[in-house]
Simulated assay, not measured.
Amino acid sequence: MTSFIPPVTVLTPIVIRILGCNPGAMTLQGTNTYLLGSGRKRILFDTGQGVPEYFNNLKSVLSSENVTLEHIIISHWHIDHIGGIKSIMNSSFSANCKVWKYARSDCSELDYVNDVLINKLQNNQEFFTEGATLKVIHTPGHSTDHIILTLKEENAVFSGDCILGEGTSIFEDLHEYLNSLHKIQDLKAKIIYPGHGPINVEETVKRYIQHRLEREKNILVVIDSFPVDKEWTVDELVEILYKETPRELHKAAGWNVSRHLHKLLKDDKVTLTNDKWKIRSNL
């Protein structure tokens, strides 16, 4: 059961969370977006999916705080984080606002998304607004363009989809994802503001790393418990590894198992032939 998250929450004097109003199996209670700073001009981290209710809540917060947006920073390209850009940028409270996102390495991106000019983020780029000092850190793995933000004043991290408030995240490249988790762990943040779900603490990063390594071990144990020449499809492994997980989440689980297997392939622990996996006989 997921925790209840109000549509709008003043978390600290410099952090207001506005929920994306797009709950679902993959988005939990919805996408968390964050209004940062304490002055008349502030920074928005992520824009939700484009749900009208979210836009109305954001507009209400900006009006009650009597503030406008100076920058919008996007954690990564997924629609539930970038979908609200056009509505926000067409509003009166975003005049002269700049939108920023890290460039994807897996495709040729346009400079415009939904007719909105996108400025390209750089690793270690810093943003300053009254009350908040932010630093961009490139953390690929969940997606090639994924970034997190650090907030100096609170020793906090806005983790996007690298770390969720509940459950675990999916990823495109497990090797890069684990490296990114270690980057976050090295920051020793006191607070983690996730892309979905409730606030977390630094200990969650260690749990995420342990979970991925334990899942890798479980995959090898399952494969090794059958004859060495047994070949496996991803779906067959998911049926065993995720038998206690609701079936509507098996597709996402299958993606993660596949990423684990590709890492194990690089580690020379399994082989792949015609979409079927087999443990190396010399292990």
Rank of each mutant, 00 (worst) to 15 (best):
I192M: 15
S281N: 13
K251Y: 11
L151K: 06
W277Y: 15
R215G: 02
E176Y: 10
I14A: 09
Q185R: 14
A156P: 01
L58W: 05
L35T: 04
H71K: 13
I73C: 03
G131C: 10
I223K: 02
E153I: 03
S281A: 13
N114H: 03
R104I: 02
G197C: 13
G50E: 04
L265I: 01
G167A: 14
V15T: 01
S258F: 07
N256E: 09
I16K: 13
I79P: 01
K190R: 15
G160S: 01
N32V: 03
I79C: 09
R212L: 10
I192Y: 14
F171C: 09
Q210V: 00
E53G: 00
V205E: 06
H182T: 06
H196D: 06
L265M: 11
E214R: 14
P23A: 14
S143C: 05
D111V: 01
R280A: 02
T233I: 04
F171D: 01
N218R: 14
D275P: 00
H78I: 11
N56Q: 06
M1A: 14
E202M: 08
N218C: 06
N90E: 11
E203I: 03
V234R: 12
W77E: 13
I72F: 01
R104M: 10
K206V: 05
F158C: 07
K269D: 02
D106K: 10
T139C: 15
L187C: 09
Q29L: 06
L264S: 07
W255I: 12
K183M: 14
I14Y: 02
T245N: 07
L264A: 05
A252D: 08
A253C: 15
K188M: 09
I148R: 08
K266F: 02
T139W: 03
